[in-house]
Simulated scan of single mutants.
Amino acid sequence: MHERPPSERLQRQALAQIAESKRMVLAVRHALAQRQPATVLITSAAPHEGKSLLGASLASAAVSMGEERILVMDLNWYRPALHQFFGRDLLHTSDEIATRPLADVIDSGGEGEPDRLLAPTDHDQVAGSALNGPAVARRLITSARELYDTIFIDTASVFPTNRMMMDPVMLASMVDGVMMVIQSRSTARQQAKRAYKTIELSGANIIGAVLNHSESLGRA
């Protein structure tokens, strides 16, 4: 049996990932009963489990499926990463994001891309301040509901608990649904269960979990 060339394998893998992302978008729509506007928060038990990648993938997939008003927000100001997946520089200061109309601080997507709210340029200086608290998050999410049909929100992990960032447990109470990312063969089962319970006890609507780096991209 001839082994497929690397380029063909990568292409097939990319197509499979796109198809899986679209399937997850459909699962999210179903879980939220086609609600619009819909806000979906993405978190995990521990850092580096693929939250930003999932948020970027779902938002991009939603646009490719014909949805026009899609926004993906980076509210993990302690460790922002979303801008890297779109090859974008950070554009606005924390004061601008906290006080200006949302439309003025959005990074507009090109053809086939979602709009983005990226972390502030001075994110390393505002962690833990009033500009990184629930009032700012609530204003941004409320404003996003007025402008977009679906909003995916990239946040920090549940653990380790660190009040120097926008707490995902606090944010979970502001959204319609929560998705959890679990890194296959990395995150301890007990830690994942503890994070799930912590989010659940906040009264949030957990709509699914995605197993990252498994044979399949995940199950939403």
Results as ranks from 00 to 15, higher is better:
residue 204 A to F: 01
residue 83 H to G: 06
residue 61 A to L: 11
residue 12 R to E: 13
residue 72 V to N: 01
residue 85 F to M: 13
residue 177 G to P: 12
residue 122 D to W: 01
residue 10 L to A: 14
residue 209 A to P: 00
residue 219 R to S: 11
residue 11 Q to W: 03
residue 93 T to H: 08
residue 216 S to N: 14
residue 118 L to K: 14
residue 124 D to M: 05
residue 136 V to E: 04
residue 83 H to I: 06
residue 1 M to P: 04
residue 105 V to R: 08
residue 40 V to S: 06
residue 125 Q to E: 14
residue 183 Q to I: 00
residue 79 R to I: 06
residue 104 D to V: 00
residue 109 G to V: 07
residue 105 V to L: 10
residue 18 I to T: 03
residue 32 L to C: 05
residue 18 I to E: 11
residue 149 D to W: 03
residue 4 R to G: 00
residue 78 Y to N: 13
residue 134 P to I: 15
residue 134 P to G: 12
residue 35 R to I: 08
residue 61 A to F: 03
residue 15 L to F: 04
residue 96 E to G: 01
residue 11 Q to T: 02
residue 113 E to L: 11
residue 180 M to P: 00
residue 137 A to M: 11
residue 7 S to R: 13
residue 173 S to H: 01
residue 41 L to S: 10
residue 178 V to F: 10
residue 7 S to D: 09
residue 186 S to Y: 06
residue 7 S to L: 08
residue 199 I to G: 02
residue 216 S to K: 11
residue 188 A to Y: 09
residue 26 L to C: 00
residue 177 G to H: 14
residue 163 R to N: 09
residue 118 L to G: 12
residue 54 L to T: 03
residue 9 R to W: 09
residue 147 L to A: 14
residue 46 A to C: 04
residue 146 E to M: 09
residue 41 L to N: 08
residue 96 E to I: 00
residue 123 H to S: 05
residue 148 Y to T: 08
residue 16 A to V: 01
residue 90 L to I: 02
residue 52 S to V: 05
residue 149 D to N: 09
residue 134 P to H: 03
residue 136 V to G: 04
residue 137 A to G: 04
residue 42 I to E: 01
residue 169 V to W: 03
residue 185 R to D: 14
residue 196 Y to S: 11
residue 64 S to H: 11
residue 11 Q to G: 15
residue 97 I to V: 09
residue 74 D to F: 07
residue 46 A to I: 09
residue 218 G to Y: 07
residue 78 Y to I: 04
residue 63 V to C: 12
residue 145 R to Y: 05
residue 68 E to F: 00
residue 81 A to R: 11
residue 215 E to G: 06
residue 26 L to K: 14
residue 31 A to Y: 01
residue 205 N to D: 12
residue 185 R to L: 10
residue 6 P to F: 10
residue 73 M to R: 03
residue 114 P to C: 05
residue 86 F to D: 14
residue 39 T to Y: 12
residue 131 L to S: 02
residue 7 S to T: 08
residue 172 A to Q: 07
residue 115 D to W: 03
residue 175 V to E: 11
residue 31 A to D: 04
residue 87 G to T: 09
residue 1 M to W: 02
residue 85 F to I: 01
residue 216 S to V: 05
residue 75 L to F: 08
residue 54 L to R: 06
residue 166 M to N: 15
residue 41 L to Q: 13
residue 150 T to N: 02
residue 29 R to F: 05
residue 4 R to F: 12
residue 143 S to K: 06
residue 29 R to V: 01
residue 99 T to F: 14
residue 132 N to P: 03
residue 13 Q to Y: 08
residue 91 L to Q: 15
residue 212 N to C: 07
residue 157 S to Q: 07
residue 50 G to C: 08
residue 164 M to K: 05
residue 26 L to N: 11
residue 179 M to T: 05
residue 130 A to F: 02
residue 91 L to A: 15
residue 14 A to F: 01
residue 218 G to E: 15
residue 50 G to K: 12
residue 97 I to E: 08
residue 67 E to S: 04
residue 160 P to E: 05
residue 193 K to F: 07
residue 147 L to E: 15
residue 219 R to W: 11
residue 127 A to N: 04
residue 188 A to I: 06
residue 94 S to M: 03
residue 12 R to F: 04
residue 83 H to P: 03
residue 150 T to E: 09
residue 86 F to M: 13
residue 66 G to I: 02
residue 26 L to M: 13
residue 70 I to L: 09
residue 202 S to E: 06
residue 97 I to R: 10
residue 197 K to P: 00
residue 107 D to V: 13
residue 140 L to F: 09
residue 116 R to V: 10
